[in-house]
């Protein structure tokens, strides 16, 4: 599905954010990327859809190589990758519906998007997705009227309406309270399963990562230092990723979930 080969990103300031990263994400796998601030997590997923231009290395999405694409081809490739952001990154002054439909911009010519004449099939899909995340009564609300959890649900709809094969998720829960964080993570993972999507989820909450991801990759100073199953995160591994600390309390007793699934869908 997604393959990073020898990926390097050096910023103009000289900081090496990524040092020869090799990573492969198979179809339908939900992978969590953990690591301390400044480890290069954000840079890594932004390199994939080239919001940040990688310095060298190759990125394959399916069999398409992304780093050498022209602007037009890059836009086509971006349609196959949905992105979800830390601070939601909704267009604050547009309505929920407009925000969701903006996920279709890559498919719709300028004048249609200008006059908001999206194809009926897109509108149907938008309603379906909003109903799925429990927001179908909020269609006409402006994005800045919503709560954090609701905004992130709209962000999820915007990413999914692209009909992507891969989700790039950048700290989806960093601005949310613990309960909403779990709901959002659960929603993302459920939707990935329903649609067979692969996902890279940047997250600094180790517990959440262990609860929801099938695979965990630890990044430290631009290098992968752990790649394995969630229950392989021992205190030693965490020390290697984050540095010396008492990790016993952080590690999941792998039984946690499933207790609040029922009422979780709508806040």
């Amino acid at each position: 599905m997604l393959r990073l080969v020898d990926l390097v990103k050096q910023y103009k300031t000289g900081d090496k954010a990524l040092k020869h990263v090799n990573l492969e994400v198979p179809n339908g796998q939900v992978m969590a990327l953990i690591g301390p601030s400044g480890a290069g997590k954000s840079t890594l997923i932004r390199c994939v859809n080239r919001l940040v231009e990688p310095t060298s290395g190759k990125i394959y999405l399916g069999d398409k190589e992304l780093t050498s694409l022209s602007q037009g081809a890059l836009r086509k490739a971006r349609r196959r990758m949905g992105m979800i952001f830390q601070e939601y990154a909704l267009v604050e002054r547009l309505t929920v519906m407009e925000n969701v439909l903006s996920g279709r911009l890559g498919y719709v010519p300028f004048w249609r998007s200008y006059f908001r004449k999206f194809p009926q099939s897109d509108i149907d899909e938008a309603f379906r997705l909003l109903a799925r995340v429990g927001l179908d009564h909020m269609v006409d609300k402006r994005a800045d009227e919503l709560s954090g959890g609701q905004r992130q649900r709209v962000g999820i709809c915007r990413a999914l309406i692209q009909n992507p094969e891969l989700l790039l998720v950048d700290e989806p829960t960093a601005s949310l309270d613990p309960k909403t964080s779990r709901q959002i993570m659960r929603l993302i993972c459920e939707l990935c399963k329903e649609r067979g999507l692969a996902a890279i989820i940047n997250i600094h909450d180790v517990l959440l990562a262990q609860m929801f991801a099938e695979r965990i990759v630890g990044l430290q100073l631009g290098e992968i230092v752990y790649d394995g199953p969630p229950d392989g995160l021992s205190p030693d591994v965490l020390t290697q990723i984050y540095g010396e600390e008492d990790w016993e309390a952080t590690i999941a007793k792998v039984e946690d979930e499933d207790d609040e699934d029922e009422e979780a869908a709508v806040p």
Binding site: N49, L51, R75, K76, A77, R78, R79, M81, G82, M83, F85, Q86, E87, A89, L90, V91, E92, S102, G103, R104, L105, G106, Y107, S113, G155, R158, Q162, L168
Partner: peptide
């Protein structure tokens, strides 16, 4: 970030 989000859709 709002601009990034719209860019990421392939607009």
């Amino acid at each position: 970030s709002q601009v990034e989000a719209v860019t990421a859709t392939g607009a």
